[in-house]
Every structure is written in C-alpha cells, then in structure tokens.
Simulated assay, not measured.
Amino acid sequence: MTGVKHLIEVHGLKKTYQSGDSRVEAVRNMDFFIDDAEFVTLMGRSGSGKSTLLSILGALNHPTGGKVLVDSLDIYALTAEQRADFRSEYIGFIFQSFQLIPYLTVLENVKLPMAVTGRKKKVQDRMAEDVIERVGLTAKSLRLPDQLSGGEQERVAIARAIVNKPPLILADEPTGNLDSKTAGDIMGLLKSLNSDGHTVIVVTHNPDMEAYAGRTIRVRDGECFV
C-alpha cells in the first residue's frame, strides 16, 4: 500500500441496462474514493443503484463506462480469469440471502473459498476453525445451515467471507432479514473486523446502520452523494 492514496478509486463510473426499447441508467457518472481500513455504508432506497454499485466494486459486474481502481489496479482491464483470481484473493463477499450450501456443515461452508488455494486440509481446517471461533460458532461447527438461526447463518457467511483474510469485505444488506438486536450484533462484528484492518463496505437502506460506519455514501437514482 506504500504510496497509494486510496484503496478504491471510482472515476466516471456508469452502468446502463437495456430493457426492451428503454435504457436504464443504474449507475450515473459516479466519482468517489474509499481509503484503506475505512468502514463505509452505501445508503439508499431499493432500486437506487447501490447493489449494482457494490457488484461493480466487487469485480462481478462490468461497467458500461468509467474505471474502478483497487490498490491502483484497474480491475476491469483484467481478463475474466484474472478478475476471478483477484476476487478470491482480495475480496470477501457477504450476501443478504447468506448463500450457504444446505447439505454442508458450518465448517464445510466456511472452507469453500479455500478450495482453489492449494492449502493442505489441515491448514484449511485450522483457518476455518479460527474464523468460526471468531464469529462465536465453535459449538455449532458441525451443524447444517437449517439447524441455525438467521443471525447464526449470517455469522457463518461472515466467517466464510474472511477465511482467506481478504483486505476488502463487501456486504449487501447483511442485516436485511434480521431483527434489530441481531442486526446490531452483526454490524458490531463487522465493526470489529474493520478495527482489525479490513476495509468494510456495507450496502443498506436502514439509517440505524450508519452509526457503525465512519462514513456514508448516499446513492439516489444511480448517483452518489459523498
């Protein structure tokens, strides 16, 4: 990171979808930056463009125009294979719907991102057990997802996202399906990870979640307001 001013730089970002005869501008000429080890919320109503923006930041959704630099790397100048490698090494994703494999245990779900790393099984087990302990689920590591509460499933999703120790954590409405107390616990856990040095970006429509972030970028009608 030496000499790098910002971890993420977004320049003139655009994303347009064609819907029949009409064009939908999901992201309109955005410019902003996010520093290393920041905790940022992307705040906006449903349909504002915030989830589209997060998918672009996560190297999942090729923009129509503009650039996204992560650690000075132009991620959309990479090949698809290079972007896949970048995602696996650099980004941890947390989804609102958890995206857990129902027939795998907590431990097995958490180990999934390490399948392509070439690490030995003992190393994978130890790393997975460490992050499962971090999220407070050691006693439930051999349970299946449907044997867990919603908050516990979200904790598994967080453990899976951080098991490869990515610098960047992207969370899309991680508290959207949770009650207020559990949502606060999950945001507190993300805040703790941020304190450990992870850069955390959370998409949310809930103003209560802003209190956990150091900064909020508001998204409205495809535009951002920093």
Rank of each mutant, 00 (worst) to 15 (best):
T2Y: 14
V10D: 12
V10W: 05
L13N: 12
Y17V: 04
Y17D: 08
D21G: 14
V24G: 11
E25G: 03
A26C: 14
V27P: 02
M30Q: 10
M30K: 06
F32D: 14
F32G: 07
F33D: 12
I34P: 10
I34Q: 12
D35H: 13
F39E: 10
V40L: 11
L42S: 09
R45H: 07
G49K: 00
S51E: 09
S51L: 08
T52P: 07
T52Q: 10
T52A: 13
L53P: 01
S55G: 00
I56T: 07
G58F: 03
A59W: 05
L60A: 13
P63F: 07
G65I: 01
G66H: 02
I75N: 11
L78F: 09
T79P: 13
A80W: 00
E81Y: 10
Q82P: 12
A84R: 01
D85I: 01
R87I: 01
E89D: 14
I94K: 08
I94T: 02
S97V: 00
S97Q: 15
F98K: 05
L100A: 07
L107Q: 04
A115F: 10
V116S: 15
V116Y: 15
V123H: 14
M127E: 14
I132C: 13
I132P: 04
R134H: 12
V135P: 10
G136H: 15
L137R: 04
K140Q: 12
S141N: 13
R143P: 00
R143W: 04
D146T: 05
Q147K: 03
L148H: 06
S149V: 03
E152R: 03
E152N: 04
R155M: 06
R155L: 06
A157T: 03
I158D: 06
I158G: 09
R160A: 11
N164G: 11
N164E: 00
P166Y: 03
P166C: 08
L168G: 04
D172V: 02
P174V: 04
D179F: 07
S180I: 02
S180P: 00
G184C: 04
D185Q: 13
D185S: 06
I186W: 09
I186F: 11
M187R: 02
L189M: 15
L190K: 13
L193M: 10
L193D: 00
S195F: 01
H198F: 11
V202D: 12
T204I: 07
T204S: 14
N206S: 12
P207H: 15
A213K: 05
T216P: 11
I217V: 14
I217Y: 11
D221F: 02
C224I: 09
